[in-house]
Design a protein around this nucleic acid. Structure first.
Length: 478
RNA sequence: GGCCCCAUCGUCUAGUCGGUCUAGGACGUAGCCCUCUCAAGGCUAAAACACGGGUUCGAGUCCCGUUGGGGCUACCA
C-alpha cells in the first residue's frame, strides 16, 4: 500500500508551530516512504475562513521547505462531492433530516436538566414520518442532515496512542450538513480522505475524540478507514495550549525574527519525537532517514523558545559563509544595512565579516544589524562601553599614537597589527589589554567584539586609523 | 460535570522481553578552562522517575487508585 498523507489546516488563523509540526511529520512520513503529500485547505466554514490566512499558511509551509505533491485543494471546492456522500447516507438511512433550528436547540439545551454541555440531541427529528418530512420540506423549512449514531462502541488503534475505545452512548447524532447546505468538517474530512485515498491521517491529538465519529462514517459507508496517528499538542510555558497569547506562535513570525527554517524544522522535529539516540542536530535528509511514527511521544510538549534559539545559533554558526551571506541578505535589507557592493566586489569581504562576528549571534536580525559596525562610516558609541574601557585619561595620547604606528605599517595584517600594538604597549609600559580594549571601543563603539586584530583587518587600515584618531575627541571630552 | 488521553531533571527527552538506572543526553542555570572584551568551544556541577497501593526474588519499566495536566463534549475545524 502506498503512503498517501495530507496536511489539512483550516485557514482560520496563521499557521502556528503546532500545525507546522504536524505538517512536518506528514512530510517526513511521505518522504520516508516515497509517498505522496497532499495539501488540503479545510475551509468548510466560510464564515471563519480567510483567503489571507490560506496564503499565510502556504507561505509558511513553503518557507519551511515542505513541498507537497498534490494540491493545494480547497475543501470548499468539493461541496458537491460532500453533499453526495451525505445523500448516500440519507438514502441508506444512516442519516436523517433534522428541522430543529440552532435557536431551538440552544433553548432545549438550556431547559434540559444538568449543564448545557451535558445535553445531547434528543433525536426529535429521527422519528419524523415521511409525510411530516415532505410537508416541512414543501413549506421551505431548512433542514440539517444528522448522522444516526448506532448502538455499540467504536474503537481503533492509534499509531502513537495505541488502542482507544469509545462507547456510542457518549456520542450524539452529529450534524453532517448544516441547514444552510454547508457540509461540516466531520463529513468533509471523511469524504475527502476517502476520495484522495489517504492511507495515514497524521494530525493533532485534539482530534482524538472526534475520530470515533469519523470511524462511524467509514463504517456506514462500508469503507476501510485509514491509519490514524495523533500527535500530542504543543503547549505554552504556562502549560496551556499554545495560542497568540503566548507571543509569537506563528511560523512566519519566527521567520521575521531571524530564525532559519532548518533550525525551526530541527527544533520542531525533536519536540515530541525522538529517534531513541542522543542526536540533536538533524539536517533534512537525516530527519527523513530517521523518522518513524513510533518515535512520536504521547505526552504534550512545552514550546521552549530558548532551545529554538540555541538551534538557530548552531545553524548560523555552522552554515558555509557563502550560504550565510545569502540567508542574511533579506534581514540586512530590512535593517537598512544592505549595500549594493555586497553583491559585487565586496562579497568576499561580507562573507568574512559574517564568519567573524557570527559566534555571538543566534538570530539573523541581530547578525545583520551588526554588519553595519564594520561596513558603516560612523561608529555608534555605547555609553557603557566608554565607561568600561575609556576610563584611563592617558588613552587620549595612546590611541592616536597607536593610530600612527598602524598607519606606518608596511603590511596591514593580523601579525603586523598585533606586533605593532604590543610593541607600543611595551614601550609605554602598559598592559596590552589596555590598548586592546580601548581600541575595541574606538573601532566598534562596543565593549563586545571579535578579536581586535581581526576587527582591524576587516575594517582595513583607513577605517582603523581614522576611528582611532577620532576617538581622541571622545576621550578628551569625557 | 461526563467521556477520552497523558504523567522521568525548570524545559525537550533516552530508558531494549521488568534485573548496576548509584536514571543517560540536550536547552537553560552555576562554576572552571581558554582569553584582549563578549560570545563560541571544552570541562564540571546542581537538577527528575507525581503520590499511594499492588504483582514480582526484583518496577522508572506491569496492574489499580489518587492527584495533576491536556483534549473533546457546536449547524468550529
Amino acid at each position: 500500500m502506498s503512503v498517501r498523507v495530507r496536511f489539512a489546516p483550516s485557514p482560520t488563523g496563521h499557521l502556528h508551530v503546532g500545525g507546522a509540526r504536524t505538517a512536518l511529520f506528514n512530510w517526513l512520513l511521505a518522504r520516508k516512504a516515497g509517498g505522496t503529500l497532499i495539501l488540503r485547505i479545510e475551509d468548510t466554514d466560510r464564515e471563519r475562513s480567510a483567503d489571507a490566512m490560506t496564503r499565510d499558511i502556504i507561505e509558511a509551509v513553503e518557507w519551511m521547505g515542505l513541498d507537497w505533491n498534490e494540491g493545494p485543494i480547497r475543501q470548499s471546492e468539493r461541496l458537491d462531492r460532500h453533499r453526495a456522500v451525505a445523500d448516500a447516507l440519507l438514502e441508506s438511512r444512516h442519516a436523517y433530516r433534522c428541522f430543529c433550528s440552532p435557536e431551538e436547540l440552544a433553548q432545549r439545551r438550556r431547559a434540559g436538566s444538568g449543564t448545557p454541555d451535558e445535553w445531547k440531541y434528543d433525536r426529535r427529528c429521527l422519528s419524523l414520518s415521511e409525510d411530516a418530512i415532505a410537508a416541512r420540506t414543501a413549506a421551505g423549512r431548512p433542514a440539517a442532515v444528522r448522522f444516526h449514531v448506532p448502538e455499540g462502541s467504536v474503537g481503533f488503534t492509534d499509531a502513537v496512542f495505541g488502542p482507544i475505545r469509545k462507547s456510542g452512548e457518549e456520542l450524539e447524532d452529529f450534524v453532517l450538513v448544516r441547514s444552510t447546505g454547508q457540509p461540516t468538517y466531520l463529513l468533509s474530512v471523511v469524504a475527502d480522505d476517502l476520495d484522495m485515498a489517504v492511507s495515514h491521517v497524521v494530525r493533532g491529538a485534539d482530534h482524538i475524540a472526534n475520530t470515533p465519529k469519523q470511524l462511524l462514517l467509514y463504517r456506514a459507508l462500508g469503507r476501510t478507514p485509514p491509519v490514524f496517528a495523533h500527535v500530542p499538542l504543543i503547549l505554552g510555558s504556562d502549560r496551556t495550549r499554545l495560542s497568540k497569547r503566548h507571543g509569537a506562535a506563528a511560523v512566519l513570525a519566527y521567520r521575521d525574527a531571524g530564525i532559519l527554517p532548518e533550525a525551526l524544522v530541527n527544533f520542531l522535529a525533536l519536540l515530541g519525537w525522538s529517534d531513541g539516540t542522543d542526536r540533536e542536530i538533524f539536517d533534512r535528509a537525516s530527519l527523513v532517514d530517521a523518522f518513524s511514527l513510533d518515535g512520536i511521544s504521547r505526552s504534550n510538549a512545552v514550546f521552549d523558545a530558548d532551545k529554538l534559539s540555541w538551534f538557530n545559533g548552531r545553524y548560523i554558526h555552522s552554515l558555509p559563509p557563502a550560504d550565510l551571506a545569502v540567508r542574511v541578505a533579506p534581514a540586512m535589507k530590512s535593517a537598512g544595512v544592505w549595500e549594493d557592493r555586497f553583491e559585487g566586489p565586496d562579497r568576499d569581504w561580507l562573507e568574512q565579516v559574517l564568519a567573524l562576528i557570527r559566534p555571538r549571534f543566534r538570530s539573523l536580525d541581530a547578525l545583520a544589524a551588526e554588519v553595519e559596525t564594520y561596513a558603516g562610516e560612523r561608529v555608534e558609541y555605547e555609553p557603557a562601553a566608554i565607561e568600561k574601557f575609556f576610563n584611563d585619561p592617558r588613552l587620549a595620547d595612546y590611541l592616536p599614537a597607536l593610530a600612527e604606528r598602524l598607519n606606518d605599517l608596511e603590511r596591514f595584517d593580523l601579525e603586523s597589527t598585533e606586533s605593532a600594538l604590543r610593541t607600543l604597549a611595551g614601550e609605554l609600559g602598559v598592559r596590552a589589554g589596555l590598548l586592546i580594549n580601548a581600541s575595541r571601543v574606538a573601532l566598534t563603539g562596543q565593549s563586545v567584539a571579535p578579536g581586535i586584530f581581526d576587527v582591524m583587518v576587516m575594517l582595513g587600515r583607513a577605517k582603523t586609523v581614522g576611528r582611532l584618531r577620532v576617538s581622541k575627541v571622545l576621550l578628551s571630552s569625557s
